[in-house]
Amino acid sequence: MDKNYLKMGPHDVGGEESLPIDTTDNNMTHWEKYANALRIVVSSKRIITLDELRYHTEALGDQYFEIGYFERNCLSLHNICIQKGIYDMELFQKIKSKKISEFDVPIVDLPDVATINHIHDGKPHLHNVSDFQEDESGDGPPDYYFDTLAIAQIFIDQGLITNDDIALKIEQFDNVFPNRGKAVVAKAWHDNLFKEELIKDAKKAISDIGIELETFADIICMPQTDTVHHIVVCTLCSCYPRTLLGMPPSWYKSRSYRSRVVHEPREVLAEFGTIVPESKEIKVHDSNADMRYLILPPRPSNTEDLSEQELSKLVERDYLVGVRLPK
């Protein structure tokens, strides 16, 4: 590997040596979903553009990999707002304190069971420890969630966005977007004509079946074949066809995946349990600008009798990024 090139910044990781990939996908917490939804609402309404957000995330320097993905996205949004004068620190702190106080619930000492002895139906009634449970346990939300809530509240107060905008995005990311890609692939498995249209012009083919993607980007569909294995990465950030597949899995956003796929795709694929024979070409797609990618996996064997609906249940997200193949 050429070690002499100059990286643009902490985000420009393509080609780095890095650690093995944690291929499990961690489910998102509510605050991660909220932070993601706010970012998408703000950028889709063009209040702040995606490229501005990326620029300010890249400018975090050493902090970039020291804090988590959603935290750094929140911090860059905040920095832009301050720089552009959308709000000042005084207003921000005031709203944030208010948001924190809404989470303040009085801590009530649980009763000592040994001292409780009261009468039920005329008989002494003893209690067990298990009768008294905390409603919640574990840590509360991270500090950046309050930052996110404060930023959202200021945008709402300024009439730029609404609570419903954020709620809708959370709902779409949970229940709408992830199903679209699966439906599209099931249709392509079932309908050869649609498959051809999809490969020719994916965004149009998807629109023609009534799915209007809320995105400025174009979609390119690459079919897996007997001779070529396709795999997608974004080495600069986490570009992903979100309105077609939902949120990218945690490994897709990881430094390891982003660094390594471009220069050792076979090794990375093996970590996902995908062994690509030497006879096959591996084609890596760095989703680094305005295109988004959908990998079309081969239809699983012995599924000739299945309906489109039944086929859609066999489509897994990992196939559509190219890290795994159906059996």
Partner: peptide, 22 residues
């Protein structure tokens, strides 16, 4: 061609990488 991008690329000659460039 991956061979043209990385010194000592460990994969196959035919492996490729595609990117979007302005």
């Amino acid at each position: 061609k991956q061979m043209d991008v990385w010194d000592n690329y460990s994969g196959k000659d035919s492996d490729t990488i595609e990117l979007e460039i302005y």
